[in-house]
Design a protein around this nucleic acid. Sequence first.
DNA 1: TTTAGGG
DNA 2: CCCTAAA
Length: 702
Amino acid sequence: MVFKKRSDYGFNAFNVPRAPRSIRRRGRAKRTVEDSQICAFELLASLAGKLLQESESSASSNASEGHDHVTIGKDVVKQEIHYQDKPLKTESVEQGSFEVSVVASESTTENSDNLKGFTHAGDDAILERTSIKKQRAFSEQISGDLKAVICKGNVAYGNFPGNVDRCSPNFGELCDGKSENEFKKERDSKGLETGALSIGNTCPLKDPVSMTFPAPINSNRDVKLTSHRDPLLNASFSRHRNDIKLGSRDDDDKNFSRFNKLTNRFKASRPPTCIGDRRIRKLLTSKYWKVAPKLKDFEHSRADGGIKPLYRKRKTYYNYDRCQYDTYKRRKFFDRSSIVTYDGGISSESVSNSPEKVMNGDKSSSAAMLNGACGISSLHTSHHASNKSNDSHVKFSIKSFRIPELYIEVPETATVGSLKRTVMEAVTALLGGGIRVGVLLQGKKVRDDSRTLSQTGISSEDNLDALGFTLEPGPAKAPPPVYSEEPPLLLSCDAAAQNLTSSSATPVVDTGIPDDTPGSSLLTNSANHMDNNHELVSSPTDMLTDKSLPDSRALVPVPAMNVESLAVVPFNQKIRKSELAQRRTRRPFSVSEVEALVQAVEELGTGRWRDIKLRAFENADHRTYVDLKDKWKTLVHTAKISPQQRRGEPVPQELLDRVLAAHAYWSQHQAKQQGKHHPGTLRITDAQADRNGVAAIPTVTM
DNA sequence: TTTAGGG
DNA sequence: CCCTAAA
């Protein structure tokens, strides 16, 4: 799979850091933020004053001439909103309630496609009394849709209970079943006085749970809200929600407190309380793939599920299989930050089939949801196409997509800004490669695009449960690893792209649906083995590299919207951390791998796992020497037990025999590399003896 | 970082 | 597979 050679990354990619771009961007971003902050405050201040004045002045006439009043307010509000739009977007996490207000107003104004309906309803409600009735009707009509969308947004981004409630009072209400009318009323009464600000201000006040959570979280929550503006990001992290949700609720307190600690630092020493983590982690591990989160659960979602591991080098190492070694190398190079997309395997999403819910005009809502949740609209379209035939439409809604995990690591000393950029780059790189939607049925990928839903078996409702969608990176399905460097250097996007492509070239085992492909690399190695020639291994790499080059493209320039979306970063961080916490995907050893392992052990003996790794699994980045050691352990065990007790892919008895023989042999020789072997059970094949003379290669004598 | 073992 | 103690 990941046939990236260290040399490739190390030199090709890293030697040519794209300092220019990153620097450029960084500088610009900074400025923007500063400016925006100033502007934002000023605007808000002046605006508040203005609004106040106007409302007062018009108060008298208002009674008889509500229209005027309304009109005025409307203009003001609109204006404000416009101004706010840009500057406020850049608000950072620390803004607290202010941030919230900004966000709220934003969401109200800047209609992302998905929220458009909602937005309109809200604005109109405030601005135009005369049309309230109408609006209400409209609102109600779309309320269902909006609700879904909104909830989705909250859930996805809000990893904390408080988040949802607090940051999105409006949304929250909708989600909670409060009618938008209520919302409108509220705004009506206050709207003219405070305009857009009221939206934000009300948030904190309404937060039912705010008391429950430590301050740090609050700020975070605020930020989160912002996230729903970036569909892509949303999509990326929606998965987290799932994970989080899985965490046991009774751990909330513990987790939250810890979370706070962590919040202060991206990297922190290992939290004192590990039990919780572990427990959670296990929970996540066990349920992770099975549980399909429900919207209802969003209040309980937490982000810290597996934060702890993040802070542990070791953990890190284990988690991004593909990049482990490379990462290490990079560290040597820069010792700064690094970002890699973690190969979470193919993204999988949770699809909820809610035929009952999605009715009539609700299709639009589904579309909205999709867009909002994942920034992918094609799905909706395709769906339609497939269903055109007759009335028997297949209705379903997608709650979230899962996308390949992004692994992000930055030094404690990194600035928030750099972190943001880093995350942005990772995301952008991922998206830059293009994203596809995949369809899963019964856990299997449906590859034939030409088949109809009914033909595929997606038509019947009972099958909908088994239906799933995935977001897949670009044309290639492998998740694109992204590397990015912190201040000192930023990895070139190309590098990232390359990685991306290259990795994809070799289909890595997908998380959800493992296509065991590792064999190939192994085979190659084996071949090398025979020749005692380890260089061959590189061939695949080269090929990949070549291929990837054309495809590689610079990261998509970060659009303006990125600025705000960056605010989400912190969450992502956490979230992603939680992902890190995830146990790495299981990759059962294939027979060929076992064979390679046995071979290597026969040659090198036990106790030299690193060498074995290098020799037989150098290309299998997901196999660490610890893995090999563990595998050997299990192999020995397997060989000792009766065939009936063995599970999983059966290992040829021949191999098991060799395992036992080698085990016995090396046990006796204590892995004394010195070549003297007792030709008892093992026959040394001189031809295969290690060149270094470290060890001879014993061959089992059956 | 590796190795060796327990979980 | 994960986690750690040791080396």
